[in-house]
């Protein structure tokens, strides 16, 4: 479980850092080409007023999830944010057989990599490991200490 958590954190952090250090990066393309039932919502996010918020929100959220899962602190919070992000990615380009898939590598039928990683986030939420490996370990010890006093 620790390894699983570290791998997901690793992935999120790297995605976030890549975007953070590239001033040209934007989610316009991904959002503008959205498909499926929530298409209009994602298109709305590409508006001038929204796109800056969407881009920065995404970058900060990615780095946040990466840090929490890698460092092992507030991991439940990180797992929820990660699951919400992945749900949005999935809904923007859902792998429904009746939609033409754009810019996707691999072949999927409903279940795709985003959905799987989302489920992993749920599992991480259910089975937290930061008490065992992560910064949380120190806080826990302190708590135990306070209680025993």
């Amino acid at each position: 479980m620790v390894l699983l958590r570290l791998f997901v954190g690793w992935h999120f952090l790297y995605e976030g850092i890549i975007k953070l250090y590239n001033p040209d990066w934007t989610s316009v393309g991904y959002l503008a080409s959205a498909q499926g039932p929530f298409r209009s919502f994602f298109i709305w996010m590409t508006s001038d007023a929204m796109i800056g918020i969407a881009d920065w929100g995404n970058k900060i959220a990615l780095v946040f999830v990466g840090l929490t899962l890698l460092l092992g602190i507030f991991e439940k919070c990180g797992a929820i944010v990660g699951a919400v992000l992945l749900a949005m990615y999935y809904l923007a380009h859902p792998s429904f057989p009746w939609l033409t898939e754009v810019s996707v590598e691999g072949s999927y039928w409903f279940v795709n990599k985003n959905l799987i990683e989302l489920m992993v986030c749920v599992v991480i939420y259910q089975l937290p490991t930061s008490r065992y490996f992560g910064l949380q370990r120190f806080f826990d010890k302190k708590e135990v200490l306070t209680q025993s006093n």
């Binding site: 690793w10 953070l20 490996f133 910064l135």
Partner: peptide, 17 residues
């Protein structure tokens, strides 16, 4: 076990940047 994530974080951050 508490600080093990930090070098990992550093490595990923550095690699991405």
């Amino acid at each position: 076990k508490g600080l093990g994530g930090i070098p990992l974080m550093g490595a990923v951050w550095w690699a991405g940047a």
